[in-house]
Write a protein that binds this DNA or RNA. Structure first.
Lengths: 227, 227
DNA sequence: TAGATTGTTAATCGATTAACAATC
DNA sequence: TAGATTGTTAATCGATTAACAATC
């Protein structure tokens, strides 16, 4: 296995895992890089390069054994290990994540939520209780937590991130609209929903602008030939 | 403005916008690429290259006028235009998105939700009503909608995406765990939450593996010199 | 004018794709 | 063995960084 795996490859791993899960479900036993490439709309070369970052999972003349490759990528992603989460911010999004069924089958388990709103404190969501935010440190001392999810307003998120670092949390899943400043050994994975939506908005508006321009230049864009 | 803007640049635009919004709030009138670079932890060169993809927003010897640059990037992202959304799938996540306050101030407005569950049909979330999914086509005929959000199980999402394309929807914000197969003029922006979490899980496990390895080789990692 | 800082070209770096020898 | 297909090296492509002339 390579020592330094590029972000591009890591980002593609879950997608490989998803396609392999599908193949497994379809009872496909073996697949070649070119067949998988056709399904995934990528190049076979990229697939072989990506997989060889981690080891020789295939076999010349045969291809890849689906159950084996699926298991190996699963291991890389830590699917086979139990990972304990807490969610800080039990608003709509935090509660939605706590209710999310898909995490469970990939080894993620939400153990507790935290909030400052007396309205939600004490509630139980999928077996996970909502605690007052002030109990955070005490809770983390008694419970082994791998990942802390931040679903709070940005100012509070920055402050809570600091507290989490002090408690020794090494992985933060951040939904707050801000970049967190943490120690270099703390991993942060950002999900900026409004920024994702803004990217879509950009592309939509760019496409409209382009269309308008071609209309103005007389090209109807209907594919009609003028010759 | 360049004709073909790379994905890398588009992905960075909302972050620039966020930092410029902060500067605006701090009443900073002008900023140089190197000062902004220091704040954002990127290179000044990248900032200048990125911005020049769209035009010369700066001025030699002066830098960038914050309110102007903020407005220009806002225009690129379509912040100044009203964009109408629907959400298909009024489960926890769909409802959380409908409740999201941050969208409004960026010009996004949720007009309606759709579901098959009689339990949620008829409810109103932030002024948007939940309709039966079967009304989708009739609704889209009467209402101008820019973006359709998919927060449903994957099989249903694939089917609904087809229906949306037939209705002429040109932008889909997809939260379902699947790649949607749509016409080439339909834009899809994916948010795969569990894949984001799996990337974090990968990095966490890779870091632990690495740490374990250095421990085994006798390197305590405390920075102690052995010489 | 002199200093600052952009816009832009050139150099570097990294990621993707192509090619093919190794091998099942 | 012959055919298929990987693992891997080499070539290409694109994105990032550096450098500097243009100019405010």
């Amino acid at each position: 296995m390579k020592d330094k795996v590029s972000t591009a490859v890591i980002q593609r791993l879950p997608r490989y895992y998803r396609y392999l899960s599908d193949l497994l479900e379809e009872n496909v036993e073996r697949i070649s890089s070119s067949d998988l490439a056709a399904r995934m709309h990528v190049t076979a070369s990229q697939i072989r390069q990506d997989l060889n970052t981690f080891g020789g999972f295939g076999q010349q003349g045969y291809g890849y054994h689906v159950p084996h490759l699926h298991a190996e990528i699963g291991k890389l992603l830590g699917i086979d290990q139990q990972k304990y989460l807490i969610i800080i911010g039990a608003g709509n999004l935090g509660q939605a994540l706590a209710n999310y069924q898909n995490f469970t089958k990939r080894g993620f388990q939400v153990k507790a939520l935290f909030d400052i709103d007396p309205e939600v404190i004490g509630r139980t969501i999928q077996g996970a209780q909502v605690f007052p935010l002030e109990y955070l440190e005490a809770y983390l001392e008694k419970n082994a937590i791998d990942i802390a999810t931040l679903t709070l307003p940005r100012d509070r998120a920055i402050e809570v991130a600091k507290r989490l670092c002090r408690c020794g949390i090494k992985a933060i899943w951040n939904f707050a609209h801000t970049d967190l400043q943490v120690d270099e050994d703390v991993l942060v994975e950002n999900v900026h929903l409004s920024e994702s939506l803004m990217q879509l908005s950009y592309r939509m508006i760019a496409a409209r602008r382009k269309q308008k321009k071609t209309e103005e230049t007389g090209d109807t864009g209907t594919g009609e030939r003028s010759d």
